[in-house]
Amino acid sequence: LIGALSLGINSGAYVAEIIRGGLMSLDPGQMEAGRSLGLNYFDTMRFIVIPQAFKAILPSLGNEFITLLKDTSLISVVGGKEIVYFAQAIITRTYETMYPYLITAVMYLILVLIFTWLQGKLERRLRQSDRR
């Protein structure tokens, strides 16, 4: 619980900064344009600002998610049960260190490749909407 909480707080700080940076990267004229159309603050954020900021935020947010996935291996240090924990359990039974850690590394590599592929696919889909 402590490991998950600490990773959540750490990642939450990074995600908050990513979102803040994405919102600050937009031209302030976008908010003014929404307000001049008669939209209130909430609707301007919902329909104009956030969809544009999401395209800027997505790559950094995807990278933070992948980093968080890799940081879960640190939970085994405080006794949490995750992939490295199970590799260490196999090592204590078999006294073979290379293969469990190699399999663990391959599992992390496969997970990171899958999430990177999904992130790229989502970014390409969002880029297609820019061309129209």
Rank of each mutant, 00 (worst) to 15 (best):
N63D: 13
G3N: 12
R124N: 12
G80D: 05
D27L: 01
I48D: 01
Q88N: 14
I57E: 00
S73V: 06
G38S: 15
S129L: 08
L58S: 01
Y101K: 09
V77C: 11
T44S: 09
R124T: 08
F42R: 15
Y14T: 05
E96L: 09
E96D: 10
R20N: 05
L69A: 15
V15P: 00
I48S: 01
P100Q: 13
G3K: 08
V112R: 04
G22C: 01
S76R: 07
T67H: 13
Y85Q: 07
I2N: 08
I18L: 07
A105K: 07
P28M: 02
G80Y: 05
G8V: 05
L26H: 01
V84D: 03
G62V: 03
I48Q: 00
I9E: 03
P100F: 09
L111C: 10
G79N: 12
Q128Y: 10
S36H: 05
V106P: 05
Y85W: 10
I50V: 14
D43K: 08
L111T: 05
E82I: 10
S6C: 11
K121L: 12
E17F: 03
A16P: 00
E96R: 09
G21C: 06
M24P: 00
Y99S: 14
I83L: 14
S76F: 15
M24S: 05
E123R: 01
G3W: 03
V112S: 11
Q128H: 11
F65E: 00
Y41N: 13
